[in-house]
C-alpha cells in the first residue's frame, strides 16, 4: 500500500512547499494588492490538506503537532487585540495606524497594524478549515 504511492509522496514533498510559499506571498501582498489573511490562510490550509491526503492523519499529526482549537483562539485574540489598541487612545474600534520606519536590512519599510490583524485572520482560517475537514474525516459512523 505504501510503495504504491511513490509518485504521490515524492510529488507532495515538493509541491506542498511551493503552495506554502505562495500562501506567504498572498498573505504579504494583501495590503496593496489582491490577497490577504483569508486567502493566504486558505492556501496554507490546502497545502497542509495535501499532506494529509497524500500521507495519513497519524503521521502528519506527529510531524505538525498543532492544536487547531488553540490556533483559532490565538488568532481571534490577536485580531480583537489589534482592534482594541485604537480604543486605548479614544479612537473607534479597529482604527488602523501605519508609518514608515528605517529597518536595519530592509531599509525604509511601511509598517501597519493591519498586519497583526491579518495574521489573526490567517490563523483562524487555517484552524477552522483543517478542524472541520479532520473532524469530518475522523467521524466513525
Amino acid at each position: 500500500m505504501n510503495r504504491q504511492r511513490l509518485i504521490l509522496h515524492s510529488m507532495t514533498k515538493v509541491v506542498s512547499f511551493i503552495i506554502l510559499s505562495f500562501s506567504i506571498f498572498l498573505f504579504f501582498a494583501g495590503h496593496n494588492e489582491p490577497g490577504g489573511g483569508f486567502i493566504g490562510g486558505l492556501m496554507t490550509a490546502s497545502a497542509l490538506l495535501l499532506l494529509y491526503v497524500s500521507f495519513d492523519i497519524q503521521t502528519i499529526r506527529r510531524v505538525i503537532p498543532f492544536d487547531y482549537v488553540k490556533m483559532i483562539a490565538v488568532g481571534l485574540l490577536l485580531a480583537i487585540g489589534t482592534g482594541l489598541i485604537g480604543m486605548l487612545f479614544g479612537l473607534p474600534f479597529l482604527t488602523q495606524f501605519d508609518d514608515y520606519f528605517q529597518l536595519p536590512i530592509l531599509g525604509e519599510t511601511h509598517l501597519a497594524t493591519a498586519l497583526p490583524f491579518d495574521l489573526g485572520i490567517y490563523l483562524v482560517v487555517i484552524g477552522v478549515a483543517l478542524l472541520v475537514i479532520l473532524t469530518i474525516a475522523e467521524d466513525d459512523s
Binding site: M1, V53, F55, D56, I57, Q58, I133, A137, E138
Partner: peptide, 8 residues
C-alpha cells in the same frame, strides 16, 4: 477513503 487514519 480520502484521508487515511493510520499508516498501513
Amino acid at each position: 477513503v480520502v484521508l487515511d487514519r493510520t499508516r498501513d
